[in-house]
Simulated assay, not measured.
Amino acid sequence: MTTQTTLAALAAASALLLAGCGGSTQSGDTASNAPANSNSTAAPQMSDQQAPPEQVVVDVTIKDGKVTPTNEQLQAKVGDPIVVRVDSDAADQLHVHSNPEHTFAVEPKAGQSFQFTVTVPGKVDVELHELNRTIASIAVQ
């Protein structure tokens, strides 16, 4: 009987440990679900905070006196960043007819980037002065 009592005690202890572990796992799952939900809630907030603002990007190529794009029609919101990325084989002057106006020196090289914002709604023309081309007209609202 001593062996049976010992086995019964071990079985009862094992059952309690397993129940305790099962309870811990469920508590752990609940605990991990709560932070996961908190993290899930926090994650979109973090990604919203880390997401770049809305912006208009215009990729411009100047090669052998030809410009692409020309007369592109775009839309933007007041205060949103507008980025003009330029690869050019010639020097020129990029002029933004907005209020306030912006002027950027284009060099004969790749990978140039110019950023500006518009604070007054209306039509904004982005032009190259030397080549006398309108790259884009942006309706800013």
Rank of each mutant, 00 (worst) to 15 (best):
Q73K: 12
K123H: 14
S137K: 09
E54V: 07
K123G: 09
D80E: 15
I135M: 00
F116W: 08
Q73V: 09
I62L: 08
T41C: 00
Q75G: 05
G23V: 11
V60L: 06
C21V: 13
S47G: 00
S40V: 10
Q4I: 12
P81L: 07
N37Y: 10
T103I: 13
S24W: 15
V58A: 00
Q55R: 14
V78S: 01
A105M: 11
I62H: 00
E107K: 15
D125T: 15
V96D: 01
H95C: 04
H97N: 11
A42T: 11
L128E: 05
A136N: 01
Q112G: 07
S14E: 03
S14F: 12
T6P: 00
S27Y: 15
D89K: 09
L7Y: 06
T103M: 11
M46T: 14
I62G: 02
N99C: 02
T68E: 08
Q26R: 14
G122P: 08
H102I: 06
V78H: 04
A51V: 10
A12L: 12
V56P: 01
K66W: 01
L94D: 01
G65R: 08
N37L: 13
N99Y: 06
T6R: 01
A31G: 03
L7E: 10
L94H: 02
V83H: 03
Q45H: 10
P81W: 05
A76S: 14
K109L: 09
I62T: 03
T25V: 13
A139C: 00
G111S: 10
V86G: 03
A76D: 05
V126M: 03
A34M: 08
N99S: 15
E101W: 05
S14R: 06
L18D: 01
Q75A: 09
Q112E: 12
Q49H: 09
R85N: 14
P108K: 15
V126L: 11
D92A: 05
A19E: 00
A11T: 05
N37R: 12
D87I: 07
S32A: 10
M46F: 14
A76K: 00
T25M: 14
Q141G: 15
Q50W: 07
D92V: 01
E72R: 08
F104Q: 04
S27T: 13
V58P: 02
A36V: 12
L7A: 07
T134W: 03
S27I: 14
G79K: 06
Q93F: 11
E127R: 13
Q141M: 04
Q112H: 13
A12I: 11
A11N: 06
G122A: 09
S32I: 15
S27A: 13
V86T: 04
K66Y: 07
A19G: 12
A8R: 01
V96I: 15
Q49T: 11
T5F: 06
G79H: 07
V56E: 03
T117N: 12
A136P: 00
A91P: 00
V78A: 04
A91E: 14
T61Y: 06
